[in-house]
């Protein structure tokens, strides 16, 4: 009996160990396979690949800069729009709303994260894009049209639309992490501020100060999601590899370049260039996510220390 026990333990351990190992192997394989496929492109274009402004597959000219520009710009727009709203919701849920109200609201915000990307894209094409073409765009041009970013023709499809859709998609993610970090702030911090005659909002600022690195982690996590978001962006950004100031103009991101062109890339160098740019996206999101995780973890250890001290 004891014998079968140890033997059984060994088999059991081996099976679950193999499963755990498979996760590491998958990531290693992703890196290895993509790196190998990207070699022709890397050898041919070198580091200049990242700074080239032209993307002309027919002439075998591949520059990634317009896509990097589009990815960064759309993600920054998303963050600018999403951060205040996400913080606002999280503060409302943790600091203000009664529990009975906070739970269903939190759940509804989480449902936003469950809606598939392609659905956001569909909604973006047929609801948001016309809204921007008819109302939001003209409104912005009337009042802040002197800014280069709000000049030019408004088609509704372009950088701004992509940024807004991305903002909607990352808001539930940032909100949920910020909510967790705010809840982890010891209640004594709020009491200390209140006892000094702080208003509700002044107390909230103390809480935010306590949670600052966790909030940074939440934002970085949202950034990681925005950078890698594919379908919704592909559907509304216009897929045009150009670097222009106007946010109403079409643009393109790394992820949407891949989604729109990968299936047609039959030429070896074209495929290799696409995979190289995919590898860049992979490494960037990997680093962003790792960084976010470290920031969020640091909060957990800090609040534990505060509770003990």
């Amino acid at each position: 009996m004891a014998n079968t026990g140890t033997k059984g333990d060994k088999v059991f351990h081996a099976v679950v160990f193999a499963a755990a190992l498979s996760i590491i192997l998958i990531v290693a394989a992703v890196i290895a396979v993509m790196f190998q496929s990207a070699i022709p492109s890397m050898e041919r274009f070198g580091i200049g690949f990242l700074f080239g402004r032209e993307w002309k597959p027919a002439q075998e000219e591949f520059g990634a800069l317009p896509f990097i520009f589009g990815t960064v710009t759309s993600s920054v727009i998303a963050l600018i729009l999403s951060i205040p709203v996400s913080l606002g919701i999280a503060i409302f849920l943790v600091e203000q709303a009664p529990k009975k109200l906070a739970r269903p609201i939190a759940f509804m915000v989480e449902l936003l994260a469950a809606i598939p990307s392609v659905v956001y894209g569909l909604w973006g094409i047929f609801v948001l894009a016309p809204l921007i073409r008819e109302y939001i765009g003209p409104f912005l041009q009337t009042y802040v049209g002197f800014l280069p970013i709000f000049q030019g023709r408004i088609t509704g499809i372009g950088m701004l639309t992509a940024g807004i859709i991305l903002a909607l998609m990352i808001t539930p993610i940032i909100t949920s992490v910020v909510r967790d970090v705010l809840e982890a702030v010891p209640h004594t911090q709020r009491e200390a501020a209140l006892a000094l005659g702080a208003t509700k909002w002044e107390t909230t600022m103390i809480v935010l100060g306590n949670a600052s690195s966790g909030i940074a982690g939440a934002v970085v996590l949202g950034l990681g999601r925005a950078v890698g978001e594919t379908m919704a962006v592909t559907m509304v950004i216009g897929n045009s590899p150009q670097i222009v100031a106007s946010l109403f103009e079409p643009a393109n991101t790394i992820a949407s370049l891949l989604a729109a062109n990968f299936a047609e890339a039959t030429d070896e160098m074209y495929l290799s260039a696409l995979i190289e740019i995919g590898l860049v996206l992979f490494l960037v999101t990997f680093i962003i996510n790792a960084f976010a995780k470290l920031l969020i973890l640091s909060v957990a250890s800090k609040t534990n220390a505060a509770k003990q001290g």
């Binding site: 996760i23 990531v27 394989a29 993509m34 999601r225 594919t230 891949l258 999101t285 996510n289």
Partner: peptide
């Protein structure tokens, strides 16, 4: 690695 894999864009998995 699992946490970072969760955050990897799914299109990358498609390429893989």
């Amino acid at each position: 690695v699992a946490d970072t894999l969760i955050g990897v864009p799914s299109i990358i998995i498609g390429i893989f």
